[in-house]
Computed example of a mutant assay.
Amino acid sequence: MSMVQSGKLTLSSDNATETVGGRTTTFTQVTFPTPFPAGSEVVVQTTVQTFNGPETPGVRLHDVSNTGFLIRFNELYGGGVTSDGKHTAETVGWTAYTI
């Protein structure tokens, strides 16, 4: 049986763009209201729901588990686009479900 949870948070970034994979010291922990059953395969999808800052806030996720996930803004970087990584507060909605 599939299980679904959702929520939203206010997220901002006072940090430089992170360019090293796996470095998560600037991420924010989100804990699910109810843990998914142990051993579940959990998928998290996010959507930025506001437009408060002019730069595009890329959303990075890490360490998705049955109890929560890590999230941060990482403004778009590369392909000729350079960002300082800092971004004002935006509302981010998330949906987590088991597959």
Results as ranks from 00 to 15, higher is better:
residue 1 M to R: 11
residue 1 M to N: 11
residue 2 S to L: 14
residue 3 M to D: 05
residue 5 Q to E: 13
residue 8 K to Q: 15
residue 13 S to Q: 03
residue 13 S to L: 00
residue 14 D to Y: 00
residue 15 N to V: 01
residue 16 A to T: 05
residue 16 A to G: 03
residue 17 T to R: 00
residue 18 E to T: 09
residue 20 V to C: 00
residue 21 G to P: 01
residue 25 T to W: 00
residue 25 T to F: 03
residue 26 T to K: 03
residue 31 T to H: 01
residue 31 T to I: 08
residue 32 F to K: 00
residue 33 P to R: 02
residue 34 T to S: 15
residue 35 P to Q: 06
residue 35 P to E: 10
residue 37 P to D: 09
residue 40 S to K: 08
residue 41 E to Q: 14
residue 43 V to G: 03
residue 44 V to M: 04
residue 44 V to T: 08
residue 45 Q to T: 14
residue 45 Q to D: 11
residue 46 T to E: 09
residue 48 V to S: 00
residue 48 V to T: 15
residue 48 V to P: 04
residue 50 T to L: 03
residue 50 T to E: 13
residue 51 F to W: 14
residue 52 N to H: 13
residue 52 N to G: 11
residue 54 P to V: 12
residue 54 P to K: 10
residue 55 E to S: 11
residue 56 T to D: 12
residue 56 T to N: 11
residue 57 P to Y: 06
residue 59 V to I: 15
residue 61 L to T: 09
residue 61 L to K: 09
residue 63 D to G: 09
residue 66 N to C: 12
residue 68 G to T: 08
residue 69 F to G: 01
residue 71 I to V: 15
residue 71 I to A: 02
residue 71 I to F: 06
residue 71 I to N: 00
residue 73 F to L: 01
residue 74 N to R: 08
residue 74 N to A: 12
residue 74 N to H: 06
residue 75 E to A: 12
residue 76 L to C: 09
residue 76 L to N: 11
residue 81 V to F: 09
residue 82 T to P: 00
residue 82 T to I: 13
residue 83 S to N: 15
residue 83 S to W: 03
residue 84 D to P: 00
residue 84 D to W: 10
residue 86 K to W: 05
residue 88 T to I: 11
residue 90 E to A: 07
residue 91 T to I: 15
residue 91 T to K: 11
residue 93 G to L: 01
residue 96 A to K: 03
residue 97 Y to G: 13
